[in-house]
Every structure is written in structure tokens, then in C-alpha cells.
Design a binder for these strands. Sequence first.
DNA 1: CATGTATAAAACCAATAGGTTATGAAACGA
DNA 2: TCGTTTCATAACCTATTGGTTTTATACATG
Lengths: 122, 122
Amino acid sequence: MKRNGYLNATPERLDATFTALADPTRRAILARLVAGEATVTELAAPFDMSQPAISKHLKVLERAGLVSRGRDAQRRPCRLEARPLREATDWLENYRDYWEESYQRLDALLDELKTGEGTSTE
Amino acid sequence: MKRNGYLNATPERLDATFTALADPTRRAILARLVAGEATVTELAAPFDMSQPAISKHLKVLERAGLVSRGRDAQRRPCRLEARPLREATDWLENYRDYWEESYQRLDALLDELKTGEGTSTE
DNA sequence: CATGTATAAAACCAATAGGTTATGAAACGA
DNA sequence: TCGTTTCATAACCTATTGGTTTTATACATG
């Protein structure tokens, strides 16, 4: 049930990707980049944090392949890269069956509690 | 385009979940738990690592809510919990449109390179 | 009751993460 | 050529991570 067709992530890439996603600042940066390319200073602006701190976060994102950088004079515009996101999603999709099942069980239980009330196994 | 209906993860939960997923040992433990409950020693067996090390990994997984523990005499069986996996998946799904678009662009490019050869913009 | 088994907790260590300030370097604009 | 902007790098600090070994606890069983 996996609509695949592309290559899979190595464990190292998953390590790097999930590590990168584990920080709220970096997730915010990614969210910003969905809207399009941005320079380091633009990315740093919303945060109460020094510029080198943001540069470090960007390096983590870059190491995971989540971000690539161009060049525009003295600026180094960042762009979001899709691949690791897809790979992480693919990895998690392997568990979809599992948690859908879990929630079906939960739904059934809630259903029983609601409609049952006295009608059920008591 | 989000088939939701359930609650969303707090940033702290996402931090904890992605942190937990960022380690290959912990991912392997999760994979094992899909097959059903397991004790700590069972989980530790495949790894060339001390028991306390595994206990620490389990604590990380527990802190993220990915694992819950029961009690069976001196054993503390671990079970996989679905919720954080679903929440992480949901978070990543927000990017699905983005990377599907990216890959369409890539596909189009590859197509052009393959079928075009000389027919294209040259 | 004594011993073995399953797990947790403590103390320790090296490496990494996440932040800081200060400095350096590349490119632009006057 | 000089100053300004944009960014990276270095050096430093503290807290956390991921591992170790050793010790303690809790239960089961002969």
C-alpha cells in the first residue's frame, strides 16, 4: 500500500532529518521557506537570537539536505529541498496501518461508551 | 486537504517525538514493537549495548509518548503508542503538497531530457 | 529464606548541541 | 578606496546525549 517509485532514505539521512526537525526554530525556518527563498538575515529576523545561531541552525538543515543555498552577491539565499521531507514521510507511512488500527480501536471504544451506556457488556 | 479530525501536537511533543526518532537504535526498537509487546531484555537482545543503555533509550521513547509500559511481575513490557506517530505524520503531511510539486517539476525535467534530446528549447 | 532474574538508578565520561561574543571575508555602493 | 551589508568562522560556555560500570530494588522460585 505504498505509492512509492522513488529511492529510500539511508539511516544516516533519517538521523539527520529527524534531528533537524526536532528543533522548533528549525521547523519555523522550514515553514517560512515554503513561501519561497529567503536570505539568512530574513530568516533570522523573527527570532530573538543572534545571526550566528541561525547560521548554525541552517547548517544543521543543510546537513540533512532540507535546505540548499544559492548565491546572490553577498547574500546566500536558502531554498527548501523536498527530498528528505518525502523520505521522512515515507518512513512514517510504514506505521500508518498501525496507528489507524489503534484509532479504530479507540473509536470503537468511544462508540461503545457513548451509545452503550447500559446496553453493553455490563 | 487534510483528513484530520483529531488533535494536533504541541511543539514540545514534536520536539520530543522527532528527537526520539532521530536515533537508529530507537527506530529499531519501534520497528520491533510493531510486532507486539516486548520486555526490556527482549528489546535489548539484538543490540551490542548494555541493558542500562536500552533503558535510557526507552525512557526517551516514553517521554515522547511513543512507548508505554505495563507490569508483569518483575518485567515491564513495552508497547508502541500510536498517537505521536500520527501527530508527526500529520505535521509532515503539511509539506506533502510542496514536495509532490517538487517531484512533478523533477519528473517534467527528466521527461524533457529523455524525450526532448534535441526537440526542446535548444 | 536464599538465590536468580528483570529492571532501574547512580555516578561517571566524552562528545555534541545550542547558544553567546568577537572577528573575518566577500561583495556592493558611494 | 572606504565604509556597509551579509554572512561565516572561531573560541568559548553550559547543558544534554549516549554510552559505560556498578549498585540497588522487586519479584519468583527452589
